[in-house]
């Protein structure tokens, strides 16, 4: 009986007992051994073996998920665990996680085992326009999110693709509870995007170009595009061949702004009294912005020469 009660109490204790430990944190770049980029661009940490021992004694649900808390700054994020190979008393965190928690290497981080609901929907916002350069966002994201267990609202995480780091912010998660976090392990997730930061401006610019280039009836009436094409062009010309021996159809595509590069543009012969404004639009360079900025840092200095110059002005 006593054994039973002991067992029960142990069991009982285990149920109530949580994994709640403080470790000194270090970025994953400081793991001894080979560099592991997929760890740095993921949502999983590396804990010491003792943590595994402790966790295995507890009745934890799988996958193991944790709260990471910087108590001093009162900042929280969440994540999973990748391996238990860290030195005792240490935890290795991806760099973006340390930034999110505003931790310095060697600071204390509180790691608490927790349960997190499966996510059904996330909304992400890339932090720069160059994310749009990726052709297949879906595949890239799918691949990158494999390294993540959780997504926390308003975190900015990093992914690596093609030697390029993309920062992505989590705008919204569903279901959204007080902790604003969902688990993304083995779940069907609807992913939505906000336009990247700076996208509006580039959109505006494109729109302007379209306005100036497309609108207008005189352009077609006088056949401006055709005239530009007639001009003598010193653009690179040539044909290509496919490996299978077929000819590549040459596409005579001339960017209208290239008219500037033509050595001898075609004449524009119109009757007197005709005014045409449909030239390709060229935006003014934004030079004066840099001129206006007085804080703009510039290298300055004076050179000296050992021998005084004989030339006098």
């Amino acid at each position: 009986f006593s054994m039973m009660s002991q067992l029960r109490s142990a069991f009982h204790n285990n149920v109530n007992q949580r994994f709640d430990t403080r470790y000194r944190c270090y970025p994953v770049a400081m793991i001894p051994g080979e560099e592991r980029p997929n760890v740095n661009y993921g949502g999983k940490v590396i804990l010491p073996p003792s943590a595994l021992e402790k966790l295995s004694r507890l009745n934890v649900s799988y996958p193991m998920l944790f709260d990471f808390e910087n108590e001093a700054a009162e900042k929280k994020t969440h994540g999973g665990v990748l391996e238990f190979i860290a030195e005792e008393g240490r935890v290795y965190l991806p760099y973006w996680m340390m930034t999110t928690l505003s931790l310095e290497p060697g600071d204390l981080v509180r790691v608490i085992n927790t349960d997190i609901a499966q996510g059904s929907y996330v909304k992400l916002q890339p932090q720069s326009v160059n994310f749009l350069d990726i052709t297949d966002h879906r595949a890239v994201l799918e691949n990158a999110l494999r390294n993540f267990s959780t997504l926390t609202k308003s975190d900015i995480f990093e992914i690596l693709y093609n030697d390029q780091v993309y920062q992505i912010k989590v705008i919204d998660v569903q279901p959204d509870d007080s902790r604003h976090v969902v688990s993304v392990v083995e779940t069907d997730l609807v992913v939505d995007f906000d336009p990247p930061i700076g996208y509006e401006e580039s959109l505006q610019k494109n729109k302007q170009q379209n306005i100036a280039g497309v609108q207008g009836t005189m352009v077609t009436k006088i056949g401006y595009d055709e005239l530009v094409r007639q001009g003598d062009s010193n653009l690179m010309k040539g044909t290509g061949t496919k490996l299978n021996g077929k000819e590549v159809a040459e596409v005579p595509k001339i960017n209208l702004l290239d008219v500037e590069k033509q050595e001898c543009p075609a004449p524009l012969i119109l009757p007197l009294g005709t005014y045409f404004f449909g030239y390709p639009y060229k935006a003014p360079s934004i030079e004066e912005d840099s001129k206006k900025d007085p804080n703009l840092f510039k290298f300055e200095g004076a050179g000296t020469s050992l021998r005084a110059s004989r030339k006098t002005n």
Binding site: M218, V219, F277, G278
Partner: peptide, 9 residues
């Protein structure tokens, strides 16, 4: 008058 030009008559 046109959006991208004008011709005197």
């Amino acid at each position: 008058s046109e959006a991208d030009g004008v011709t005197l008559e």
